[in-house]
Design a protein around this nucleic acid. Structure first.
Lengths: 180, 180
DNA sequence: GCTACCTATGCAACAAGGTGCACTGCAACC
DNA sequence: GGTTGCAGTGCACCTTGTTGCATAGGTAGC
């Protein structure tokens, strides 16, 4: 499972609480690997038992106590092991595509409206990425190491969203032209 | 869940056995929504209980008996209902991206090799799609209705694989240039 | 003659992900 | 003064997906 490894990578970049991690998985790293707070709390607990992360209980006044996590030596070793290991190419899983394929068995106009909605969604997401690209990586040519790696992942997100927007446009155009 | 609906769409196009469906989900429709034979048998069983599909037991000699499934009226109604309903945009889930992001915590060369492997995989998949496009849809401009919808989904697959290949190339080039 | 694969279905167990809820106390809004 | 939202962790339950195994006769290759 990659969730553990995504958490390890994120904690290595910056230690933090489960709540704070859940926030990160709701944006930034979460754009490429989503997770709910439930998954994160459960996984952190398991990783403490495995000695992949270290916990520190922090008492707070006025707000709930929290647990601060940071990556442990075992976690670093696990990351190295996992990075060297081959991984399965992810396969597509796009409900919208199934709907397009079956559109003629229902209301084609409704499916078309869904495609338009998805296009808007992906266009918004694309905007978010472009802003990040502009603000955080103004000079991509000068990047090295970790910064470069983060940039490349962002580039993947941009490509994916751009591709989806273009596909939605193609579908909208074709369905709009079709009168049968 | 969309697996049920993907099966319904597939059965509507052509009735068949669970085994035969598992074959389809191993190629064609499976390129966009993968499923194992286990999932398919379980889901078919459930859909029979819901009266979404009808079964016919067929005794065979020399080979195991089989069950032939076709879509029922309830399944058609469910498809119409589902097609009219909005669906959540899928979020990305690409383990390779997590590896690229964490590459500096391990053997960057190994991650780079993985990216090359994935590029090859997606390039092969892209070839498969291009062959289907050329053979099954020689004249896209003349397509209507169901044929057009199938073509549009294939176009989505082509775009996705093309995008992945290009991203892998970008990553390979950038990692190859980086000496830090 | 032995191995391996194909057809065909399915159970059992497990891993992973998602949903709903519960508790607490402060700050901000209207 | 009541509602909403945030910070913070977690349980219980449910759905979805994966893996290993079982069964059994036919066919194809070495």
């Amino acid at each position: 499972m990659a969730l553990e490894h995504a958490i390890l990578v994120s904690l290595e970049e910056r230690p933090g609480s489960g709540y704070e991690l859940a926030g990160r998985f709701d944006k930034s790293i979460g754009y490429f690997w989503a997770a709910t707070h439930q998954q994160i709390y459960r996984t952190l607990k398991r990783m403490v038992e495995l000695d992949w992360v270290a916990v520190e209980h922090i008492a707070q006044q006025g707000r709930p106590d929290k647990k601060h996590y940071r990556i442990a030596a075992g976690g670093r070793a696990e990351l190295r092991r996992w990075l060297a290991e081959p991984s399965e190419p992810a396969h597509l899983r796009e409900e919208l595509a199934v709907k397009v394929r079956g559109a003629s068995l229902g209301d084609v106009a409704a499916v078309r409206a869904e495609v338009a909605r998805h296009r808007d969604h992906h266009a918004e997401r694309l905007d978010v990425y472009r802003v990040i690209e502009k603000n955080d990586f103004p000079d991509p040519g000068s990047l090295h190491g970790r910064g470069l790696h983060q940039y490349l992942v962002l580039r993947g997100g941009i490509r994916a969203e751009q591709g989806m927007v273009e596909w939605c446009e193609e579908v909208l155009e074709a369905l709009g032209r079709d009168r049968s």
